[in-house]
Design a protein around this nucleic acid. Structure first.
Lengths: 224, 224
DNA sequence: CGCCGTTTCGTACGCCGTACGTGGTACGCT
DNA sequence: AGCGTACCACGTACGGCGTACGAAACGGCG
């Protein structure tokens, strides 16, 4: 009957693991991981708190699954180009994804159960390195360096309270500079004033270090 | 009188910000940050939960202060040697400190209020780089790369479930290898088997990448 | 219609951080 | 000696958390 169908429709779309995951990621993106609660998530979905537990074993399980969603968003290194270009693209993609989901950074490598997207991703990156000629040991070195740089950069980036050079200049002169008087902290003070004067733009900072590392790794590759 | 003094002594040592901080750091070291609660901390100190709030404005304030304790444990770069050796030593020291206080990694750069030890540390590192001849902009690049590598490495390191090559071998063959069959994940499988066969030792992994980065940075220094 | 597997939910327990108010203690002042 | 004041410790209570447990609603089948 129309009544039944309507009632069904009114009482919300069915829950599903997909929908729960998507809502959780979205809430974490918008309001931070620490404010993501099962109750709040359920409220957002128009459901009771305990209803989530049919689709998710626990909050930990939810977090693991969220991490795998994030891994799934990172581009795999392309296979049709130079190893450096491939790894570079993968790193840039990962950086963007982590900037979009800053709550994930501390969890990506620290959770016990890697999801399928996670494993697939690691396999693809490792394949790129091995096919570039790196030995297993050298590929391990390279992977550690690249991922350390990637995660560390993303981690630091989340704490930046600005996005544009203008905001940086404003923040610095209003908040930071008063805290670092030139007589006590000459170098910090000098750096802060110089950088805003030069209109320091943070946008290309990641690529700068990434290329430095890639070039250094190139030197470790066995010459053909 | 003796009676008074004894009563005073029995009713516990006085609380103090120092004691609260030390106990909090110790508890986080031993049981993780997520299980550190104000109630538990007070219990550990033989005090009531609310007593802590005289010495600490809030749990956030406590965390900020804990971070500064950690910063205070990191060696400043020595001033009596080569810039590379100085930066290297401070990085190694920081790595050890972060391994001792893994809970701190996600917080060090992400909290709003840097403490005094934090600022002093940044000043000293920046001073070393500037005195080595790097321009302000280049020193900024170098700092980003070095700290990204440092934090990222420490972050990944916390998730390693092993400390020695033997443990690695055990973990890998028992837990990981079954999850990455050779037909589906050839490179991961190969890497895992090769590394345990070669008795891969993770101990020097950090220094390897650090030296690679330092050497690459050397190339960016203005030639005298 | 009754049955049953799937999905949803209400209640309750033991945690958490902390606002608020109270009470004890140490010490400088008269 | 007596008292005011600043310092310090604490008990209670509130609203939130994750989730164990069991009941209820629903959909499709006979």
């Amino acid at each position: 009957m129309a009544g039944e169908a309507k009632k069904r429709a009114e009482s919300r779309v069915q829950l599903s693991r997909q929908r729960v995951l998507a809502a959780a990621v979205s809430m974490a993106d918008n309001h931070g991981l620490e404010t993501l609660s099962m109750r709040g998530l359920a409220r957002e979905l128009g459901a009771g708190a305990m209803s989530l537990y049919y689709h998710v074993a626990s909050k930990d399980d939810l977090l693991d699954a969220m991490i795998d969603v994030v891994f799934g968003e990172i581009d795999l290194p392309p296979t049709d180009c130079d190893w450096k270009a491939a790894i570079r693209q993968r790193a840039l993609s990962a950086r963007h994804v982590l900037a979009r989901h800053p709550w994930a950074i501390g969890l990506m490598e620290s959770r016990a159960n890697p999801g399928p997207a996670n494993v697939r991703h690691h396999e693809a990156v490792l394949a790129t390195l091995r096919q570039a000629g790196f030995s297993v040991v050298m590929a391990t070195h390279a992977y550690w360096i690249l991922d350390s740089y990637l995660y560390g950069f993303a981690l630091q980036e989340t704490s930046l309270p600005f996005a544009t050079p203008e905001e940086l200049a404003e923040m610095t002169s209003d908040v930071y500079l008063p805290q670092i008087p030139a007589d006590e902290y000459p170098y910090l003070n000098e750096a802060a004033t110089d950088l805003i004067e030069a209109g320091y733009d943070h946008t290309s900072e990641f690529a700068f270090g990434l290329d430095l590392i890639l070039d250094a790794l190139e030197g470790l590759r066995p010459s053909v």
